[in-house]
Design a protein around this nucleic acid. Structure first.
Lengths: 165, 165
DNA sequence: CACAAAATGATTGTGCACAATTTAAATTGC
DNA sequence: GCAATTTAAATTGTGCACAATCATTTTGTG
């Protein structure tokens, strides 16, 4: 980590006792990502309330609006979530009438997830969200695009390391 | 959102049916942040296992290694977490012997959190982590610093919007 | 064909996050 | 001086995340 924007002023640091401490919270990129993720989640919670969706449920709908039906496995690969997360989440979405779940006919192991008519209708109410959030971000589209691209590279590198054990 | 790096190639888009769909998952910066946060969490889970810490517990220790004792309120402001998250988390940390919790003497509402000797000793085992994670990120320090700075601005803008209702 | 290995989800258990409410203590306003 | 308000934590309830494990089905190989 060690993300300290100050080039060691040596005279008037904001934290005199920790001029360039790698263990300082503010030097942790992971915390910037973690806390920004929570900030997104809170803003989406407000915006998604009227759609009756949580943020992870919104992500599932994004995937299903692109392609459907899909097995849970594919949804999990797309969102990087496992069955321990998705099985109960999808059961809640089925209970609220947004999706249907049924075993695949040619492969009985799979559970195919399909949006209901209500789930498809929700898309029209969701189209206003991305522009609204982009506006709230206060950053221009080029900056947002550049951040997403760098984060995707970072994520890929981190996951490579995780899988290297 | 609308984070599409392609300037509308019109001829060979990677997703022919969704050339520049604002509702496409890959156009959501929030998902890049969300999934990168999970990737960090998984890598830290591996690295922190030998310290007996979860990632949020590690963040609490970072705060306490900077300043202690601290009331729960201050820890929550620093990490942007509320008492509903911190109270049980700190109780678990007390149970594992990393911190002590005691009511403040001058203000009986407060619970002051202090690292134990074991909690302070853990710092020596944690110093290797930030460089290890920075290496795993595969990005140079300037890039990491720049990302953290932009995320901090983004987070601030998002939270302003949340509090504007 | 048989049968071991792999793939797909479901289940179980732990630990965050957070909204909403409650309790108790401190502060304020009159 | 004391009721009304504010503040700090705790509690309650819901919903992710994820490791570990299990059951079922499919597939690969002799």
């Amino acid at each position: 980590m060690s993300i300290n924007p100050d080039p060691e002023p040596a005279t008037a640091p904001s934290k005199p006792d920790l001029p360039d401490d790698p263990l300082a919270l503010d030097n942790h990129l992971c915390f910037a990502v973690y806390s920004t993720s929570h900030a997104f989640s809170r803003l989406y919670r407000q915006q998604l309330a009227r759609l009756g969706l949580t943020y992870p449920q919104y992500l599932v709908m994004l995937v299903l609006w692109e392609t459907a039906p899909l097995p849970i496995k594919t949804i999990g690969e797309r969102l990087m979530l496992d069955s321990g997360t998705l099985t109960p989440l999808l059961k809640r979405m089925e209970a609220t009438g947004l999706i249907n779940r049924e075993r695949g006919s040619q492969d009985e192991r799979q559970v195919l997830v399909t949006p209901t008519a209500a789930g498809l209708d929700l898309r029209a109410k969701a189209v206003g969200l991305p522009p609204s959030i982009a506006c709230a971000s206060g950053l221009d589209l080029d900056t947002l695009r550049a951040m997403a691209a760098k984060l995707t590279i970072l994520r890929s590198n981190l996951l490579d390391e995780v899988n290297r054990e």
